[in-house]
Write a protein that binds this DNA or RNA. Sequence first.
DNA 1: TAGATTGTTAATCGATTAACAATC
DNA 2: TAGATTGTTAATCGATTAACAATC
Lengths: 209, 209
Amino acid sequence: MTKVSDRQLERYPIYLRYLLSIRDSGCKSISAPAIAKELSFSQEQVRKDLQVIARSSGKPKSGRDIDDLIEDIKQFLNYNRLTKAAIAGVGHLGKALLHYRGFADFGLEIVCGFDVDNALIGTQENGKEIYSVYQIANKVEELGIEIAILAVPSRSAQDIADRFINAGIKGIWNFVPIHIKAKEDVIVENVNLASSFAVLQHKLRNEEL
Amino acid sequence: MTKVSDRQLERYPIYLRYLLSIRDSGCKSISAPAIAKELSFSQEQVRKDLQVIARSSGKPKSGRDIDDLIEDIKQFLNYNRLTKAAIAGVGHLGKALLHYRGFADFGLEIVCGFDVDNALIGTQENGKEIYSVYQIANKVEELGIEIAILAVPSRSAQDIADRFINAGIKGIWNFVPIHIKAKEDVIVENVNLASSFAVLQHKLRNEEL
DNA sequence: TAGATTGTTAATCGATTAACAATC
DNA sequence: TAGATTGTTAATCGATTAACAATC
């Protein structure tokens, strides 16, 4: 299969979201240049991105079939398969993630939460049970959790990550601004607000020049 | 000044966080290869990144002074200057952002929130007043808000963004999975969970091959 | 001194952009 | 047919990696 870069991967959910919205408006087909214009990408990039994942080919003049495209992107992104995940750290961010409805769209099911706080353990958040971090090993196995979503304080992040790694987790979605060390067969993907903000701030300050 | 890519910019907060943690442990200086090993970057990349922002030069054998490096990165990232921001959309995510303590570290001050819900308007969250979205124009001016942090439902994201843009906002930090259209002098930086998850999921599924 | 690390220049790698013939 | 859009190949651009002399 053609290799797909991370940056390219990041664009597919954006295409998908846009295609779904125009399908709702009754559109049947769309061209790469039209998508490019709407999403502020280059038309060449859109063309190339879509070619990689599309099974049917586009038609000159009219473009591509929207239904086909949506199905192909979903297939490519594994949205049709359900992946089970757990939230570690039920603070403000953890709670927000436990309530986030968008996850269902991309085949991610949050099955439970973990915390160290006795006041939280045994309670539910959005219908999801909160367990003690000491139960991580048991619950990962019992519930078939594949992904750990880290939203704990920085100081305990590596420790909690290790518990999941030892429990046989496959991937860690890390919202903590710390570099998590893991065996190479455990995938770690970071969401770092400081990094994102650094880009925004830098552009803001340099535009002023 | 040397041009710095987005990817490179994203790494500086990671360096900074690590340097702060080892300074706490009493370290005085550190070498590029040591940082690289700890953060899983290549040593060449770390060396080059640090050269771009460092004012003093490193010393062969011992490396660079940690205090200097920390100060230089903070300076480069504008962490010493306070930037005022407001949260639009006080749902679960908006509340989490209103409570997030880390922002202060990078010079970001959340001054207030905006929502459409009358039950929220006039209340406070973490000591920050929640105003009606109809007050955006007034409050942006009155409070000197430079950045709008979008955490509203997708369907209203562009509308709310437009209100901030018309109010003269400089940047939008967009947590909504929608492409926001803005004048080119308004900087838009996206935090897209679906994109981040797509990368994780893809690596997860391809590792299994 | 010897060795680790620096700064800097060159080589490689990969992604994006441009070009263009093919086609509905 | 004419024109827009496709698929594909080549050119450009930029970032990362490698190489190496200088130096504490």
